[in-house]
């Protein structure tokens, strides 16, 4: 089976290492993945706040592009790694199925711009594809450097599992933990797996957003996690890049690696750290490196 890949804006900038590590892992698992030609922004959460029809129209354009590119296939699987993109594309697909009047309007508009949308696209999250299509057994087989002894706090955030996705449990998701187990690491049991990181608030109204991110990191380190594993570029950005601001604001000394689950997978599959974009991290996951080298863990 081959897949189309919808990166979204973040995976080309702040979330660059998500793209790098994910594509490297796909390659290592011999998956056939192609980027959608000339995709556009999904609209994220901001667009919906201004004009709903347009928000659905621009998202639908990507679905139409996917159908154009894979026009011979019965079912087109589009991998959307960014939570916001994944949720928006999924919401768009469902909205078009349920609101026929809007669907007609959007189909007309697509036609005018030279595109067509049939509804053959399936929106997939990489966690869904890796666990349900490839399977944890296959992943485990490909592991060359098991992350034995590494304690991982799986952090799914909101929109990977809510509200439309069905591949995992909305309250107690487990796919990322399944992958953690497959690469030989250990999952930390913690209650904040799907608690909001603050999303755009962390950057915009930090008085509200920053505490949310901080509480998540605090709980992860309290539960002795060596690293926080994420599946969303905004979560990763908020949790990692604002650690200095958090320490200043809350007079704390938090210092915990926040990486993409694909980066941990890559390390376990023996892919070199630079290919995985590890060099782009502000807070390198020291404990992971130490354990991989057989050294002692240091808790802060």
């Amino acid at each position: 089976m081959r897949y189309l890949y919808y990166p979204g804006c973040s995976l080309k900038s702040t979330g660059k290492s998500y793209e790098e590590s994910l594509l490297a892992v796909f390659k290592a698992l011999k998956m056939d993945v192609v980027e959608i030609n000339d995709w556009n922004c999904c609209g994220a959460t901001a667009y919906m706040a201004v004009d709903e029809t347009k928000a659905f129209a621009i998202a639908a354009r990507n679905l139409a592009l996917a159908e154009e590119q894979f026009n011979k296939e019965e079912e087109i699987h589009v991998i959307a790694p960014c939570s916001a993109c994944y949720m928006v594309l999924l919401k768009t697909k469902m909205f078009l199925e349920q609101n026929l009047a809007e669907k007609g309007r959007i189909k007309n508009a697509l036609k005018e711009s030279g595109l067509n949308y049939e509804g053959k696209v399936k929106i997939r999250h990489p966690l869904d594809v890796l666990v349900n299509d490839i399977g944890v057994k296959e992943i485990a087989k490909a592991v060359t450097h098991p992350l034995k002894g590494v304690k991982v706090a799986s952090y799914y955030g909101c929109q990977t599992v809510r509200p439309y996705s069905t591949f995992d449990d909305q309250r107690e998701p487990h796919t990322m933990d399944d992958i953690t187990a497959a690469i030989g690491a250990e999952s930390v049991d913690w209650p904040l797996k799907t608690r909001c990181c603050g999303a755009s608030l962390t950057g915009t109204i930090d008085r509200v957003g920053l505490p949310l991110s901080f509480m998540i990191l605090k709980e992860a380190s309290k539960r002795r996690a060596d690293v926080v594993s994420t599946s969303c570029p905004l979560c990763q950005f908020n949790l990692e890049c604002y650690q200095d601001n958090m320490n200043k604001q809350f007079r704390n000394d938090i210092h915990i690696g926040v990486v993409y689950f694909s980066q941990l997978m890559g390390l376990a599959l023996g892919i070199d750290p630079k290919t995985l974009g590890m060099n782009r991290l502000f807070v390198p996951p020291e404990n992971v490196y130490k354990i991989m080298k057989g050294g002692e863990k240091v808790y802060v």
């Binding site: 959460t45 949720m87 909101c158 929109q159 809510r162 509200p163 909305q170 309250r171 799907t194 909001c196 603050g198 999303a199 755009s200 608030l201 957003g209």
Partner: peptide, 8 residues
């Protein structure tokens, strides 16, 4: 923040 907790 559109985290959808309430909706779920």
């Amino acid at each position: 923040a559109s985290c959808y907790s309430c909706t779920v």
